[in-house]
Amino acid sequence: MRYVLTIKSENAPGTLYRIAGLLLRKKINIESLHVKEIDRKKHISLFTIEIFLSTHLMAKLIKQIDRVVEVTHAEYRRMQ
């Protein structure tokens, strides 16, 4: 299935690397990636990542991303 992850995090060096590392562990390829600071005062970044993944793994992966200290919010939705 094609999924879009939307992840909010502290705008800090290494956060993308940590998230990408979680994808790499499962050998998941990134189909597209966009990162932008969405809150200048609180230094919050928004990641939008497209991946292919089987459905039963998606719920597990998002919890592991959510566990990252810098991540404040993580969710996913299926692409039609």
């Binding site: 719920a59 597990k60 919890k63 592991q64 959510d66 566990r67």
Partner: peptide
């Protein structure tokens, strides 16, 4: 205590 361990 780790949410990610549940249903893993």
């Amino acid at each position: 205590i780790d949410h990610a361990e549940l249903d893993k």
